[in-house]
Computed example of a mutant assay.
Amino acid sequence: MCRWLAYSGEALQPSLVILDAQHSLVAQSLNSPLGNETVNGDGFGFGWYPENNEPGSQPAFFHSIEPAWNDQNLRELTRSIRSPLFFSHVRAAGGPPIQQTNCHPFRHENWMFMHNGFLTEFSKVKRDLTYAVDPSLYPNILGTTDSEVLFNLALTLGLKDDPIAAMAATIRKVESVGRDHGVAFPMQGTVAVTDGATMWAFRYSSQMRSRTLFHSTDVETLWEMYPDAERFKLFGPNARLIVSEPLNDLPGVFQEVPESTALVVESSGYHHEPFLAADD
């Protein structure tokens, strides 16, 4: 459905990965070898925290319905700012219209969220899932995507207190409602969420055939593996990337996140946790 990336670490110009990598996110918007759709040209989004990111800082956004490869403002912006944590997403619309309010990432206070995938037969479950959102959050749903409902449902179920438990409860709610409406495999996709300090990513589908997800190898290891690669020297030792698909073809630079896994990215590194095994 879409492609996305999430970065945390030393502040850098987002263009380094969004524009300039061999298989950058903008390149994937034109040609996504591992995606279900080769072209992801139905708008894009970029959300970033300030360079002096303080606890509780609200991220800034840039959304556009233009194809990412055709937007000069994206190039200007990502080459002009520096950020220690940012999300970016290119969209392949699977039904909801192409409009700015349907572009990821989504925001609530200091939290950001994005999703690659879908809630199967969303039209059947939309009413029940939307009504399950806390009334105080309902006015925040400005678009028509299943992803925005998923985010607000997760906020309702405790995302701010325990993101892993909240996402598990959210997906189980989606599956319960879906199956009540005769949907065999209600949930598909990968999800990224952050509070501006820690990043969480989830790879899960009800069918156990999820969209692809990878994370980068730690930079100090990459310096040892590729000592002559000048590009890797542009990243600090704490730089970490989560991506829908690798940004280059070099062996060992990206590692696949296993099916049914929650990935936690914090200052100490990456942590994998089993997430919603089939018998949970």
Rank of each mutant, 00 (worst) to 15 (best):
W4C: 01
L5G: 03
A11D: 14
A11V: 05
L12D: 13
V17G: 06
L19T: 02
L19M: 00
D20T: 03
A21N: 08
L25A: 02
V26L: 02
S29H: 05
S29P: 07
L30H: 02
S32W: 01
P33N: 14
G35H: 09
N36D: 12
E37K: 14
G41P: 00
E51W: 08
E54L: 08
F61I: 15
F62M: 10
F62C: 13
I65D: 02
W69N: 08
D71M: 00
N73A: 11
N73F: 10
R75S: 10
L77Q: 03
T78G: 01
I81Q: 08
L85K: 03
L85D: 06
F87Y: 04
G94D: 07
P97Q: 13
C103A: 12
M112R: 13
H115K: 12
T120R: 13
F122M: 05
R127C: 09
D128L: 14
L129D: 04
D134H: 10
P139C: 00
N140T: 01
G143L: 10
D146F: 11
L150E: 04
A154G: 08
A154I: 04
G158K: 00
L159W: 01
L159E: 11
A165G: 15
A165D: 12
A168Q: 01
T170P: 01
K173D: 11
V177N: 04
V177L: 14
P186H: 12
T190N: 02
T194P: 03
S206W: 04
Q207D: 14
T212D: 13
F214K: 06
T217Y: 04
V219D: 11
L222R: 02
L222N: 09
W223E: 11
E224F: 15
M225V: 06
A229Q: 12
R231T: 10
P237Y: 08
R240M: 11
L241C: 08
I242W: 03
V243I: 05
V243G: 02
V243F: 02
V243K: 02
S244C: 13
E245P: 01
F254M: 12
F254T: 06
P258E: 09
G269V: 06
Y270K: 06
H271E: 14
P274H: 03
F275L: 15
F275N: 07
A277C: 07
